[in-house]
Design a protein around this nucleic acid. Structure first.
Lengths: 348, 348
DNA sequence: TTGAAAGCGGTACCAC
DNA sequence: GTGGTACCGCTTTCAA
C-alpha cells in the first residue's frame, strides 16, 4: 500500500498563494473521480456519447473549482486544424476607414466561429513574416497591402491554410483577391479636375514610408486619366508636417499649378491650409480634391471635394473566407471591391 | 469509362497540384535519411549537440525542398511555454496616438523575441473573452481599457500568464498597471478654461459607445478642477456627425456657455465649425480647447488649443513585460504614464 | 555524432 | 455510461 501526499487548498474560494502549475483535463478528471475521456465528453458536449447528469455536474464543478481552461495548442494539435484566421497587423498608419472595416470583419468572422488574430509583423521581412504566420497553422490568412508573393502563398498553403486572401492593388497567384484598385481613385480625381477646367495638376504623395502601395496607384490613376488631354501632372512629395507644407506652398507660384489632388483628405487639409495662408485662393487659383471622404473635409472652408471610397463589407469578406475554407478546391476568386466616386464640394 | 480533365503544371519546378498534407519534421527526417531528433537539432541550432556539416546540409536541403515550417502549437505544447503576448484588439475607434503606440510596442516586444498578437474580441464578453485569451496560454497579456476584473486576472495567471498588464484608467488587483489617468486631461483643460476667465463650461462627451472609459474620466477631471470655483460644468453628449453638431450649436444661446472642452480635437473641430457657422466667435464668445494634440488642430483657424498627451513609450512597456515574465514573483507595479499638458493656441 | 523513446494536453475510437 | 489508450508534432534526455 502507498500513501500519497496531497496538497490541500486552504480556502476553496480564495486563490492559494502558491502558483501551482496550470490545471489540465487530467486534474479535472482526478478531482471529479472520472477519466480524462469523460471530462472531454462533458466539456465539449459531445453528442455521440451520453453522460449521466450527476457525472456532468461533478465534472463541471471540478473544472470550475480548478479554473480549468483548455489548451488551444493541444486541442488543435490533436484536431489537425484550427479555426484561426491570421492577419498581419498593418505597419502603416491606418485611417478610420480601415479601422471600421477591421472591426466589422472580426465581428463577422467571430460569428462564423473563427478566431481572428492580428499578427504583429513589424520588423519581420517577407519570407520570415510568412513563415511566422505559417507556424500558427491558420486555417486562413488575410493580407492587406502588397506583402505577399506567389511563393509566400505556396508556403502558407503547404502549412495548411485553406484560404489565402489578399486585399490590395493587385492579385497574387494562388490567392483569392479582393482587388482594391486605387488607380480608380486617381482616375476619378484626375478626370474631375479636368472636368472643372484644370490642366496643370499637382498630386500630393506622402513622403512617409509604408503608404506607397496606395499612393503610387493613385498617382498613376491621375496620369492615366489625363493622358492625351494635354494636361500636365506633377508629383509632389509631402511629409505630414506643417513645415513641409509651408515650404511646398512657398514654391506654389513657381509650380504654377491650377489643380491639386492630395493623397487623402488629411494631406489635402494640410496643404490647403498652407496655400490659403500664402494667399492662394481655393478653388479660384487652385482647385483641390482629396480622397477617403473623411469627416474633416466637410468641416473645412471651402468644403473639401473628395473621392469617396466604398470598402468591401466585412461580412462579404468573412463569407468568402468561410466558403474558401469549406470548399478545398475553390478556384481563386477575384473581386474588384473598391467603389470610388467623386463628391463634389466647394474646393474644386 | 470516364475521362477527367486534369490541370497540368507547365514547369516541373512548380508545386505539384495534389495538395498533400502538411510536411512534418518526420518527413524531413525521412527525406534527409536521418532521425527526427537530428532534424530538431539542426533546425534549432542546438548548441549542446554537434552535428556534422554534411548532415546539416542534408537536413536543411530536405526542409527547404518540402517547404517545412515547424508547428508552433506542437512546439509550445512540448516546451510548456510560449513567447506569445496577447492583446485584445480595441473595440473602440483608435486614433493615431494609439496606432503609433501599438506599432512601437510590437516592434519593441519583437526585438525581445516575443510574438505579439492582437486578439479580435468583438462580440465576446467579459469572462468569455478572458477564457479565449487564456486558451492560447500566452506568456503575457496586455489589456487596454477596462475590460478586466480581478477574477479575470486570476484566470489568466492560472493559465500560465506570467505577466498581466492593464493600460487604462484604473489598476486591477493582481495585475501590473500602466495608469493612464484621463481625469488629468480634464483637470488641465478645466483649469485652463478657468485661467482664461471662463466660468460656464461645456464638456463634449461622445455619444458613440466604447469611449466611456476615456470620456467619463475626462469629464470628471473638469468637474474636479472647477469644484469650488463657482464655475458650472455642463455635459454635452454629441454624436460625431454634422447634424448633431448643428443641433447642439443651435441651442448655444440658451446654453450660455463661455468655455468648451471637447473630448478630443476631432470633436472640437466638429462643434467649433458648427458654432462658427452660427456666428459664435471663438474664442471671444466661447473659448474652445480639445485634447490629443492632433495635427488638425494646428490647421484650424483659430488654431485649436489642446491638451497634449504623452503616452508611455512602447519600449518601456515592453521592458516591463519582459521583466515581469522573467521575474515570477515580481510585485505588481503601478506606473502613472499619461503626461497631460495644455498647448495654448488661439482658440482659448 | 546519431537514434530510440517519453511525454506535453486533448480527443475520439473501441472495449467493457 | 464510462474508461483505456493511441495519436497529433515536436523537443530532449539517455544510450549506443
Amino acid at each position: 500500500m502507498r500513501y500519497v501526499m496531497v496538497q490541500i487548498p486552504k480556502t476553496p474560494a480564495s486563490s492559494s498563494p502558491a502558483p501551482r502549475s496550470v490545471p489540465t483535463s487530467a486534474d479535472v478528471a482526478r478531482l471529479a473521480g472520472v477519466s480524462r475521456a469523460t471530462v472531454s465528453y462533458v466539456l465539449n458536449n459531445t453528442s455521440a456519447v451520453r453522460i449521466s447528469e450527476p457525472t456532468r455536474r461533478r465534472v463541471h464543478d471540478a473544472a470550475k473549482e480548478l479554473g480549468y481552461v483548455p489548451h488551444a495548442a493541444a486541442r488543435s494539435l490533436r484536431a489537425g486544424q484550427s479555426r484561426l484566421v491570421v492577419m498581419p497587423a498593418p505597419a502603416f498608419p491606418v485611417g478610420p476607414l480601415y479601422g471600421r472595416f477591421m472591426t466589422e470583419l472580426q465581428w463577422a468572422l467571430g460569428r462564423l466561429d473563427y478566431t481572428v488574430v492580428q499578427f504583429g509583423t513589424v520588423g519581420l521581412h517577407g519570407d520570415e513574416a510568412v513563415r511566422a504566420w505559417a507556424e500558427l497553422r491558420p486555417v486562413a490568412v488575410l493580407v492587406a497591402g502588397a506583402q505577399l508573393d506567389p511563393q509566400g502563398v505556396a508556403v502558407l498553403k503547404r502549412a495548411g491554410a485553406r484560404a489565402v486572401v489578399t486585399l490590395g492593388p493587385e492579385a497574387v497567384e494562388g490567392a483569392h483577391a479582393l482587388l482594391m484598385d486605387h488607380t480608380a481613385v486617381g482616375r476619378r480625381a484626375g478626370r474631375h479636375l479636368h472636368d472643372v477646367g484644370r490642366r496643370r495638376i499637382g498630386v500630393v504623395v506622402p513622403a512617409e514610408a509604408g503608404l506607397e502601395a496606395f499612393s503610387q496607384p493613385r498617382l498613376r490613376g491621375v496620369r492615366d486619366a489625363l493622358d492625351g488631354t494635354g494636361a500636365t501632372v506633377t508629383e509632389l512629395p509631402l511629409a505630414y508636417e506643417e513645415g513641409a507644407a509651408a515650404r511646398l506652398a512657398a514654391r506654389w507660384p513657381d509650380l504654377g499649378l491650377d489643380g491639386l489632388f492630395a493623397y487623402n483628405d488629411e494631406y489635402a487639409m494640410l496643404l490647403m491650409r498652407a496655400l490659403q495662408d500664402r494667399g492662394v485662393r481655393v478653388p479660384h487659383d487652385t482647385a483641390v480634391i482629396g480622397a477617403d471622404d473623411l469627416m474633416l473635409g466637410r468641416l473645412l472652408r471651402p468644403r473639401l471635394s473628395t473621392v469617396h471610397l466604398e470598402l468591401p463589407s466585412g461580412r462579404d469578406l468573412a463569407e468568402l473566407v468561410d466558403r474558401a475554407v469549406r470548399t478545398p478546391g475553390l478556384p481563386t476568386e477575384r473581386h474588384t471591391v473598391l467603389g470610388a466616386e467623386v463628391v463634389h464640394r466647394e474646393s474644386s
